[in-house]
Design a binder for these strands. Structure first.
Lengths: 143, 143
DNA sequence: GTGCAACTTGAAGTCAACTTGAAGTCAACC
DNA sequence: GGTTGACTTCAAGTTGACTTCAAGTTGCAC
């Protein structure tokens, strides 16, 4: 059976080795053994890491993702959860679209100050009322 | 001149007083004076807080936002920055849309296991390649 | 056998945006 | 003038997903 060392997995999956150790500690991935102290991973870990990346991209937390794997290691993903997350994404997308349109307008608005632009003030109103939720920045993958 | 105490500002702006103190410490807002130890805010702080909420919703950090106010307190927002952020939002929206479609599909996909569904595997591929960036969860406003 | 890069561990640090806690002050009301 | 409760400050804690560090192995090439 093909086995990969941590550096190889890191290279192929595009994540740092430290992340792999962290994921293992969290129970998100498992090594198939050791050569001395050094971890050995099976090829399946790459698919597993892809699933994790997918979950992260969809906005699930690592804990959510951990719960999506049944104890036998097979992914067992609740379809309702997927729908719920899709709905959530829909809401987020609508908010972001409105925000993008507002920004685009503000960028070209001829009003001398943004405060004098009715469109800007309307968006401001929406933000103040909390209709637009605050967002967290997307984490940049380290280079 | 109308002045508001911290509780009144908190109530009207919908943020906890602790946040207002935090924002003041960061230089994002300013009080117009004190009554004894107690802060007094001018009415203008509400517009300012709306601007901050707007910036947060658009995905700017508090430091970014602080830089958008010139020393005299007037907002001075770089139009190029707005365009850049709009472009960024566009990219995010496209990613999220793809993700939402994928989730929606996976939720109704008749394949016995997700791993056997071609669509799911295609999305998985995209996630693994990093085409879909990881996302941070949207912060829920405290009750 | 020797060197050393690459691995190992566990603990601690980072980041952003706040929140919480302890201990103190004080304005307003009775 | 005494109580009370809302304010104050400053420090430390929280959260999630990692990264970094120090100190200790070790597999492998020579």
């Amino acid at each position: 059976m093909e086995s990969l060392d941590i550096t190889e997995v890191a290279r192929r999956a595009g994540v740092p080795a430290s992340t792999l150790r962290f994921y293992e500690e969290k129970g998100l991935i498992a090594s198939i053994g050791r050569r001395g102290l050094h971890r050995l991973f099976g090829a399946g870990v790459l698919e597993r890491l892809a699933l994790i990346a997918l979950g992260r991209a969809a906005g699930f937390s690592l804990d959510d993702i951990a719960r999506m794997f049944s104890p036998d290691g097979q992914p067992s993903i609740d379809r309702q959860m997927l729908t719920a997350k899709a709905d959530e994404l829909d809401r987020t997308i609508r908010q972001l679209s409105a925000m993008r349109d507002g920004l685009r307008h503000a960028a070209v608005c001829p009003a001398p100050s943004h405060m004098e632009c009715p469109t800007f003030r309307r968006i401001l109103q929406a933000a103040a009322s909390g209709a637009l939720g605050p967002r967290r920045k997307t984490r940049v993958r380290s280079p």
